[in-house]
Amino acid sequence: MKEGLARVLFGAAALISTLAVALICLFLFANGIPAMAQIGLPDFLFGTTWKPSADIYGIFPMIVGSIYVTAGAIIIGVPTGLLTAIFLSRFAGGRISSLLRSGVELLAGIPSVVYGFFGLMLVVPLIRELAPGRGLSLLAAAIILGIMVLPTIITVAKNALDAVPKAYYEGALALGATHERSVFRVVVPAAISGIMAAIVLGVGRAIGETMAVVMVAGNQAVIPTSIFEGVRTMTANIVLEMGYAADLHRGALIATGVVLFVFVLLICALFNAIKNRGERS
């Protein structure tokens, strides 16, 4: 009897999250799809002009902006994050390791607006000094996002590295390989599916980030031609204009959310595919 009650309780809790996802989907598609249809899907996705005042809604610059910013974050965050994970897992002694780990955990807990503030006060002025433009740029957004994805990448990759059987490492040592070679040529390749998963999760984190990006990216709805120019992401597009948008403009912003949602779904599917492959081998 008691067990039955617990079942219902847990079931209801589980249902809430599923229900939330379903409702979000429903809301997004119900409001976004008609707008997309009205604008015309090709014009919406591949139009390079975003001019709500003239009822022109092409989000191609924002799609490209999101991809650029995310790619930049990955270029900066992945090498740093992976080397940190390898260091924590295989090189650092107990004391340094626990100190660094709490640092990484703290990094994960910092609100994104604080990252944005940090970028605005430090990264943007630095870029303004050293490069052409106002500093509010693709590069600034990539740097800030590169730091923001670190906790995800480090934690997931470190878990994957820690899970590599000791026998692989010892087998390599027993062949006369150095510690470094054993780690980089045997342990890291053995953890590759977990490392890929870490990167994909980092991509997911980067593409969805809004506040920090809005604060440092400049937000011009134009495809940038250099990393020192401003860029607007899909998330920034929504948050900047939602406050005053109405009618088709509002619909176009929600449709931007639909496109973002599809990107996140693809990333999730990729993550699951990698995870399944890793578990099978």
């Binding site: 026998a167 027993a174 062949l175 006369g176 390989a177």
Partner: peptide
Amino acid sequence: NSLRRRVGMVFQQPNPFP
């Protein structure tokens, strides 16, 4: 490392690399 090259070892559990 040169000692371990000259003195090879095969473990109790087979441990081929993946």
